[in-house]
């Protein structure tokens, strides 16, 4: 809720300038289970090996498997998830976790591995915004964002966050259904985007059944 006379700030207004300019490689698909996370992780690693400083955001809040694929699991359940916090407070910023030379931010670090996030679109957008702009990255060259399947709110947020080059890596499988879907998940025309070829990998590491965490609470310090 806004106080009278207070101007509405667009989502992403507080993203630090240096992060705002970092190119985004969005890994997307029209359908789930095609290997987006596999592709995201396996592109991040050789990019890093080539000398690029890579950030990997696991924006698939409902199946944050990128962290699990790299062997990072949070065993302790979370009692709440912080969506935003006042500047300067301990929970104001998240710290990227480095693994195999890739800096990572994931919802999997915010909740226990047996928990799941049952959040609606506006909260999901806030969380992804926090994962991208609220994380302290160490001098990254590019940000790979592993998106959830489809063309909903999180995808729209990522494609419009900041004035940066955005590249879309659309993953498909040799199936008529998934091949028919990539077009709708391409970024809107006003963003700078280039299509990359997709190399589908295995869809191993699918998320195990998760226990919903209720209620999801936001804390403000």
């Amino acid at each position: 809720m806004r106080a009278a006379g207070q101007q509405e700030r667009p989502l992403g207004a507080d993203v630090p300038a240096e992060v705002e300019q970092v190119p985004v490689i969005a890994v997307a698909s029209g359908k789930g289970g095609v290997g987006k996370t596999t592709a995201a992780v396996n592109v991040a690693l050789p990019l890093s090996a080539e000398g690029a400083r890579v950030g990997l955001v696991d924006a698939d809040l409902y199946g944050p498997d990128a962290a699990h694929m790299t062997g990072l699991n949070r065993t302790k359940d979370a009692s709440h998830v912080t969506l935003f916090a006042a500047k300067g407070t301990a929970s104001a910023r998240l710290q990227a976790v480095e693994r195999y030379g890739v800096q990572m931010a994931s919802a999997a670090f915010l909740i226990g591995q047996a928990q799941g996030l049952g959040v609606q679109a506006p909260i999901a957008q806030l969380l992804v915004h926090r994962l991208i702009g609220g994380t302290t990255w160490d001098d990254i060259d590019c940000l790979i964002v592993d998106l959830p399947p489809g063309t909903a709110d999180i995808q729209q947020l990522v494609f419009t966050l900041g004035k940066r080059a955005t590249y879309a890596l659309v993953v498909v499988t040799p199936s008529a259904r998934t091949a028919a879907r990539p077009r709708p998940c391409s970024p809107p025309p006003r963003t700078q985007s280039r299509s990359g070829r997709a190399y589908p990998g295995s869809s191993a590491c699918r998320s195990a059944r998760r226990r919903p965490m209720t209620p999801t609470s936001a804390s403000r310090s």
Binding site: N42, P46, L47, E50, D141, A165, Y167, L169
Partner: peptide, 30 residues
């Protein structure tokens, strides 16, 4: 490559990474 994959997949990911690296450029390019 950290998941189990055939060499062709590894080569494909490495090729894709090289193309992306060329596309995104370096910080001095931006």
């Amino acid at each position: 490559m950290i998941t189990r994959a055939v060499p062709e997949q590894v080569a494909a990911y490495e090729l894709l990474a090289r193309q992306l690296r060329k596309a995104i450029g370096t910080r001095s390019d931006r």
